[in-house]
Design a protein around this nucleic acid. Structure first.
Lengths: 215, 215
DNA sequence: ATTATCTATAGATCTATAGATAATGC
DNA sequence: ATTATCTATAGATCTATAGATAATGC
């Protein structure tokens, strides 16, 4: 039986919501259109009235899944707290609602151009978010630290989910929680211009000379 | 036409060699038995005379793919050189023969127990390899740094392959090459016992007092 | 006699489309 | 008249098996 346009939009949202979860849970290649539609409480035949193709669903669901990252960013009171939550048991054990950058990192190389574009945009946004919340240094140094933190974060979260050993999984999270909260809190060294560097070098040389003399 | 047992072993090796590459290239779910057999130059029907199931192939091919990690470990002259190679354009652009820990990190959570067990064993071996080549610190500190390095390494390699932006991809590799070679070379601080810590604290307090006095 | 390989195919599953139904929206 | 949804199915693809062929190995 036909529903209203408003109700169609609700159906559309429901499909996206389910897909955003299932794709993260089972991988972009690990779940079919039929399963998604069933979980969304509608029929397979209805799918192509909502999306042009499966890849279209992947693209929209990917964008949808990023909303959970928005929520995390909004919920948390500092970059350090963000990192603590990112490296938590809770996050490891809830991939369906967890970080999509992590969930899809390995599959993105095989994804379509459209999907990769959506993904890449969000990687850049996240790097910006990290860099904006770091202290000290210049823009380049903050950007570099952001890259390190994102790489280490998604690598550790993936590994903690991948390994079959609970103790090791916990250890990975613990080590990286400490490391990443540290990197979030510790200010970057102030930018040293060429002149400042020359002065610092001269100071060190002078101190060394003084030590040598005093012996 | 039937071949000899020795020739069967060659066929088996060929299948594994192809599968080890294709799985890394396309993902564990991204390539079928028929394609592997075709690439190996043999027929689909012959597959189940070589493996009990597709999952058996995945398990053996995963073990096979780890040989490329052995080669990297053997080729390289130091952990720092290992990290430089790991974070190279060459490695990023050759996933088929590259690090399997990276290639399968995202899919491992959905893999069978057998496959995960093989994977987990190799993660532990690799952490041991890193820890053994680090300098200074105690065993725990070296293990922790190994976890950080592996996490950051596979995360960065995955991201560099995932993003659709060449400049960002290159930047990720550059930042982490510098960071990881640094972590490989920089000795860990010597273990500080409670007594040593108390002495160090006392020294600092004394120095502070002296500075205050001299003003 | 055994078996390494081949061709052929069963049976499941997946994307996508066709056509019917019945309610909405003009 | 349009369209949101449904049932049914076409056509491709994937894992696994059956049975034939022809060479190996005892």
């Amino acid at each position: 039986m036909r529903r209203s346009r408003a109700e169609k939009a609700v159906t559309h949202s429901k499909i996206l919501s389910v897909a955003a979860k299932r794709f993260r849970e089972r991988g972009l290649q690990g779940i079919g259109v039929a399963d998604v539609m069933k979980d969304a409480g509608t029929s397979v035949g209805n799918f192509y009235k909502h999306f042009d193709s499966r890849d279209d669903l992947v693209m929209e669901a990917l964008a949808e899944s990023f909303k959970d990252l928005d929520t995390l960013e909004e919920t948390v009171e500092s970059l350090s707290a963000y990192m603590a939550e990112f490296m938590s048991d809770r996050h490891r054990d809830a991939p369906a609602t967890g970080c999509p950058i992590t969930a899809f990192a390995g599959e993105m190389a095989q994804a379509s151009d459209g999907v990769r574009a959506v993904y890449t945009q969000r990687v850049k946004r996240t790097l910006g978010y990290y860099a904006d919340h770091l202290k000290g240094g210049d823009a380049g140094a903050r950007h570099a630290r952001a890259i390190l933190m994102l790489s280490a974060g998604i690598g550790a979260l993936s590994l903690s989910r991948a390994v079959n050993d609970k103790a090791l999984s916990r250890e990975i999270l613990t080590v990286l929680r400490k490391e990443l909260t540290g990197l979030a809190e510790r200010p970057l060294p102030a930018k040293r211009t060429a002149v400042v560097k020359r002065i610092a070098t001269a100071k060190q040389a002078g101190a060394k000379k003084a030590r040598a003399k005093s012996r």
